[in-house]
Design a binder for these strands. Structure first.
Length: 463
RNA sequence: GGCGCUGUAGCAAAGUGGUAAUGCAGUGGACUGCAACUCCGCCAUCGUCGGUUCGAUUCCGACCAGCGCCUCCA
């Protein structure tokens, strides 16, 4: 039983070999909390939650950390814009994030470090970089430029390893305005000065705040170690974010690798276009949850391989919902069984092969369908295997009866009303008044309730 | 200019050097008072053109069409 993962660093799928099989360490870049998160933020959360679940099925202990970025210029801007204290904003949106992620059935990471709780660690790392000649404080001659500390990219010979970038070759097409205080165009900020009305912390270079990349490096070192097994995030973070994290950590830790495996998820587009503010096509998880169960969103995300791009659309969501209806329909009324993971099953094997969730999901469907048709011990065994696979995918965690009967969106009828109507229809059928029976059924259908007759009676579900 | 990705049925999405999983939709049939559910069946030669090979959707090359990063970004 081997786990293979695609490693962005080597650009190939390779056998996952942990540093310490008794303690797996994994870090995923979390959100900057200045707004509700959109579906694109949900993808890494769901994907790496699944990776976490797979790892836990293989190894006895996995430490998964996902940070909250609660100090950032975007947050400061929002704070100024709305004249609301920055802490109020970060509290509100970090809580909203946790709620959304729970709706997507992601497990709570073992560590949720906040950037602002790690200022001393960050300062310490900057100091180490300065001491080792990998960083420099800007000249204090010019008052405006004073107080910056920059990472010196030329001080690191193998800079660019992750993104395979050669800074010289990029200059031709790059439109980066180079700040005057930089010694080299590619140098990036470790520490920047804060004005009096900006949040800041005292440091050897004056009152200021950390640069974007620094927190991850500092928090990884503190909570997980100098070198971790897996570092994950969205594909767009490869450069510059992760590249710079590597530079900081590696140089601060005397050349040790920051992570052995780098995993990056592909983007989510909306109706064929990238989500962007100018297009106004952001899909907030919070809004989508008003129309779809969280499980539908999770299912959609896992129905494509995590490295490929995925196009979100209403059609995709509706289709996923119908599929889940079918699957829950298969197991509705069957006694649930304690989960037993079939480690030689196709679904689990697919997950071990670079987290191939689409194949695992098709196996989930196959098992549910087979359970629907089986009887007795065979059925129990299929249900146990189904539960085992479903647990790793974080799907099918609801009671099927609930899945079908909990009101969806704008449903008007209560369960009691529906069952009353079903009784009335039953009577009409017994009286062989089919016209009336059909009329009741149609009325219910118009109200979003589908009836399913069987020898045992009438079952209903919301559609 | 540099780095990189994608192109498989109406939609979604796996996959393999030996004629392509799966889901949704559609469709034929069974079941049903009629439906719904369910069951049985049908529905693609894998962007184009070359090359390698006994054989390619799968390898190589070119081309076409999309797209991402290089600036905040999941």
């Amino acid at each position: 039983m081997e786990l293979k993962l695609y490693n962005s660093l080597t650009r190939q799928k390779q056998l996952f070999e942990p540093i310490d099989a008794k303690r797996i360490t994994m870090y995923a870049c979390g959100p900057t909390v200045y707004n509700f998160v959109h579906i694109g933020n949900a993808r890494p959360a769901v994907v790496f939650d699944t990776v976490y679940r797979v790892l836990r099925s293989v190894y006895p202990k996995v430490i998964y950390a996902r940070n909250i970025t609660d100090i950032d210029d975007k947050i400061i801007n929002k704070s100024n814009e709305l004249s609301i204290d920055i802490n109020v904003i970060t509290k509100k949106y970090s809580e909203a994030y946790f709620d959304d992620m729970q709706a997507l059935n992601t497990l709570t990471p073992d560590e949720t470090p906040y950037a602002t709780d790690h200022i001393p660690e960050m300062i310490e790392m900057v100091q180490a970089l300065v001491d080792k000649g990998h960083a420099y404080a800007t000249d204090s001659q010019n008052e405006a430029d004073k107080g910056h500390v920059l990472f010196s990219v030329p001080s690191m010979p193998n800079y660019g390893e992750l993104s395979k970038r050669n800074l010289e070759e990029q200059e031709a097409g790059a439109r980066v305005e180079v700040a005057g205080y930089k010694q080299y165009a590619g140098d990036f900020v470790l520490w920047k000065p804060s004005t009096d009305n900006e949040p800041g912390w005292d440091s050897p270079w004056g009152r200021g705040r950390p640069g974007w990349h620094l927190e991850c490096s500092a928090m990884i070192k503190k909570h997980l170690g100098d070198t971790i097994d897996i570092h994950a995030g969205g594909h767009d973070l490869v450069f510059p974010h992760h590249e710079n994290e590597i530079a900081q950590s590696s140089c601060a830790n005397d050349g040790k690798a920051l992570a052995n495996f780098w995993m990056h998820n592909g983007f989510i587009n909306i109706d064929g276009e990238k989500m962007s503010k100018s297009l106004g096509n952001f899909r907030l998880v919070n809004d989508l949850l008003k129309q779809y169960p969280g499980e539908v969103l999770r299912y959609v995300i896992l129905s494509a391989h995590y490295r490929s791009e995925q196009n979100f659309s209403k059609e995709l969501l509706d289709s996923a919902w119908r599929t889940l209806d079918t699957v829950y329909g298969f197991i509705r009324g069957i006694d649930p069984q304690a989960a037993i993971l079939n480690r030689t099953g196709e679904g689990y094997k697919a997950l071990l092969d670079d987290i191939n969730t689409p194949v695992a999901i098709s196996e989930l469907y196959r098992l549910a369908k087979a359970a629907n048709q089986a009887q007795g011990a065979e059925q129990q065994s299929l249900m146990a295997e189904l539960a085992g696979l479903a647990d790793i995918l974080g799907l099918l965690q609801q009671d099927p009866e609930q899945w079908f009967t909990v009101a969806r969106g704008d449903d008007q009828l209560t369960t009691e009303q529906i069952e009353e109507q079903i009784q009335a229809r039953q009577q009409a059928k017994q009286d062989r008044d089919f016209a009336k029976a059909d009329q009741i059924r149609q009325q219910l259908l118009d109200a979003g309730v589908v009836l399913e007759d069987s020898r045992e009676g009438t079952q209903w579900r919301r559609a």
